[in-house]
């Protein structure tokens, strides 16, 4: 995990521009649970930013706060300098589009129709002109179809334009979600685990796709558990652990950070007497201060950490 080469990310990182998305002090509480705790994040134009963290760290919740699906308990999200209204459709209108971790396509619509729905905010013909079908309506509809087909071409789904979305294989459904999001002509694309369930080849292809999207001038914020994917792609990576941002930095910085490794591998179980030797052998990291108030002593550490995980 730690020994991947970094040519890709360094060679592709362009000069980053002005701040696009700025999240300040975002807090999201569900009753007693603080799923996102005081997270700051900035995405600049032309950047690919990674958001990683163990399961349940609050990554998806943070996405939902950014896109208006949740109204953050506290904090502020601005896009291009203006505060985003906490309504998903207004966020998309403003220029941020997203995909979902659990695929949420319109299953009984065709692939093309799915992408056309994505164009909703960039078209404006109303019900009257839809019924009258004047030249303006026809022009807009033709343009929408053309752009949607171009996006299907871009994502490699053109061949399947007429298929129902539910009949696509898993990997193509994920691509269709990306195409649908791109159809809203976003300035920032948020991808929630775009390669989940994909085989290595498909993952590679998705990597290429994300670079191609960035090359179109669209910034990308991506959640992913596939570290190879993240470290290949991202200009910066933020690590979320238990709702808090642990570190943020370039791939090298994050990979080298001991707290990240500790957060992922966890100290408690490897520190138990049975696994103790193995844990020390490949981890070879002394328990750090930030990972938890771990003590060198194995047994208290395990009992300490268990309730902490349950929170």
């Amino acid at each position: 995990m730690t020994d991947i080469t970094l040519e890709n990310s360094s060679s592709n990182s362009p000069a980053t521009g002005t701040p696009l998305l700025e999240a300040r002090g975002v807090i999201m509480r569900f009753g007693g649970l603080t799923a996102v705790n005081n997270v700051d994040l900035t995405v600049n134009t032309g950047e690919i930013i990674g958001l990683i963290g163990p399961n349940g760290a609050g990554k998806t919740t943070f996405f939902n706060c950014l896109t208006g699906l949740y109204i953050p308990t506290e904090g502020q999200v601005t896009y291009k300098g203006t505060v985003l209204p906490p309504k998903p459709f207004k966020v998309t209108q403003a220029g941020m589009a997203r995909t979902f971790q659990n695929i949420r396509l319109f299953h009984n619509m065709t692939v093309l129709e799915n992408v056309l729905v994505g164009r909703h905010t960039r078209t404006k013909e109303g019900i009257i002109s839809a019924i009258l079908r004047g030249p303006g309506y026809r022009r807009e509809e033709a343009e929408s179809r053309e752009k949607a087909m171009a996006l299907l071409e871009f994502t490699g789904l053109a061949r399947k334009a007429g298929h129902l979305a539910r009949n696509l294989p898993y990997g193509e459904q994920r691509k269709l979600e990306i195409a649908r999001a791109l159809a809203s002509e976003p300035g920032l694309l948020l991808l929630d685990e775009p390669t989940a369930g994909m085989n290595p080849q498909e993952t590679r292809a998705t990597e290429e796709l994300v670079f191609a999207i960035r090359d179109r001038g669209i910034a990308v914020l991506v959640i992913e558990h596939d570290m190879r994917f993240i470290f290949n792609l991202c200009d910066r990576v933020a690590v979320l652990v238990q709702g808090e941002k642990l570190v943020e930095g370039t791939s090298e910085v994050v990979q080298a950070d001991e707290r990240v490794i500790a957060a992922y591998l966890g100290t408690p179980y490897e520190a138990t007497p049975e696994a103790g030797a193995a844990g020390e052998a490949d981890g070879s990291i002394p328990a750090s201060d930030a990972a938890s108030d771990a003590t060198p002593d194995a047994t208290p550490d395990a009992t300490d950490a268990t309730p902490e995980e349950d929170q």
Binding site: L105, M109, H120, E140
Partner: peptide
């Protein structure tokens, strides 16, 4: 005509998945 237009697609999108539909700007 309305069902095969932008409006009709928005309606069907809401029927299929309202959350995704709003996330698509509807």
């Amino acid at each position: 005509r309305s069902s095969s237009s932008r409006i009709g697609r928005a309606w069907v999108a809401i029927r299929e998945d309202e959350t995704a539909a709003t996330a698509m700007g509807i």
